[in-house]
Amino acid sequence: MRRTRSVPEPEHHDAGLQPERTSLAWSRTTLAMIVATAMFLRWFPQYGWFTAILMAVALCTALGIYITQKLRYHRAVSGIANERIHADVAAAAWVAGSVVVLGALGLYAVLFLTLD
């Protein structure tokens, strides 16, 4: 019923369901980001506004993954169909970068902000 858009849903014949598995792996990562955000919320009473930065980084990444999920799935499907896919360097750099930033901000809070 929802197929009102003119773009046809892509199809693939990969018995290993690689595009689906990869898409689900991204979904799990989004979920992990949201869980981490919930953990940062626990710091709010002690660190106040600083927690908001941590939460913003994690939530932006989670949202970014969520928004680009469909595009990524379509690319994986056509990649399987064409037997050729470009490795997504930007996405990997972005996700790894945001995890490193989260770790660094957490480290800064633990070492330099006073807990009370």
């Binding site: 792996a25 799990r28 990562t29 399987i80």
Partner: peptide
């Protein structure tokens, strides 16, 4: 392309491990 996708999934598994460690560090504190 299957290898590229498999590599991506393995990378994401490491990222989740890293996120769990961030959350663990925060939880301990």
């Amino acid at each position: 392309p299957r290898f590229t996708l498999a590599n991506e999934r393995t990378f994401l598994a490491w990222i989740r491990t890293s996120l769990a460690l961030v959350a663990g560090g925060i939880a301990v504190e």
